[in-house]
Write a protein that binds this DNA or RNA. Structure first.
Lengths: 153, 153
DNA sequence: GCTGAAAGATGGAGCCT
DNA sequence: AGGCTCCATCTTTCAGC
């Protein structure tokens, strides 16, 4: 399942991250190889799950998603069943763009993107009615300074 | 610059988000239209900047990026010049995947992805040597419950 | 604004070295 | 493993409705 990646694989991944719409020929030229080997390496990395979803980055503001919150959550419940319900609730809600379980004093952090503050409140009310949460702090983003999915290969 | 988007545009965007490698024919079939009109709409939305970068999502863990931190930053400095240096420092550092300026008590939040805790410390030391920061809290992610760039259109 | 056609480019597969 | 060639498919353009 785990593949050993060499320098060439990493160069190819960097190109795909940068612009996944490039043709195989373009990528091959950039990394100093040719079509077939590049194509085979990409196929292998896809099969191994290293290369996942191909997507486009949309302009959230232009589409009316003008509010972004980071939500810090503390809970008193730590049973498996509660956690399961909480996880499924998060995964089911499309406004939750990120959710992490944390080490330490704060238990979870969410990144929630919504149209406006009212939509955030609707999300918040829906969430706390589904699962019991001890303490919630919402941090409102004023400005997105940087946002990327690129890994520094 | 701002385009009015109709239901058809939104359906096309949803398809592109879901899988940007689909052929025009496939997208057209999914949204109930045909090739040329879909192509024209995508071109317009690209030109308007609504549709941005086309990329692939890579498996961070498989590539050795095993640590993810959310960093809460408080600063005492609020002058334009300090802010400028801070912003440029963040944009220049590839381990910073997200950076937001916040409303309220905490001034900034970062999402930082690195190979391990030691690499986080190197990042942290480099950052505070570049710009003066009053207070930093790092939240370590134990588990990525959800991560998506998809907007709920 | 849609349809259909057509030209050129590309992906994907096989084969040769 | 890398390179060459081929064909089916796809992208992109354009004339006509």
């Amino acid at each position: 399942m785990t593949i050993r990646l060499d320098e060439m694989d990493r160069k190819i991944l960097a190109q795909l991250q940068r612009d996944a719409s490039q043709s195989l020929d373009d990528i091959a030229r950039e990394v100093g190889s040719s079509k077939t080997p590049v194509w085979n390496r990409i196929r292998k990395m896809r099969e191994a799950g290293i290369v996942g979803q191909q997507t486009v980055i949309l302009d959230a503001e232009a589409l009316g998603f003008e509010a972004c919150f980071f939500v810090l959550i503390r809970t008193s419940e730590h049973e498996a069943e509660w956690q399961n319900r909480f996880l499924h609730a998060l995964r089911a809600r499309p406004e939750v763009q990120e959710a992490h379980r944390l080490a330490g004093d704060i238990d979870y952090i969410l990144k929630v993107r919504v149209k406006n503050a009212r939509a955030y409140d609707a999300f918040y009310q829906a969430l706390i009615s589904e699962v019991k949460i001890h303490n919630v702090t919402a941090l409102l983003s004023m400005e997105e300074i940087k946002s990327t999915t690129m890994l520094p290969l």
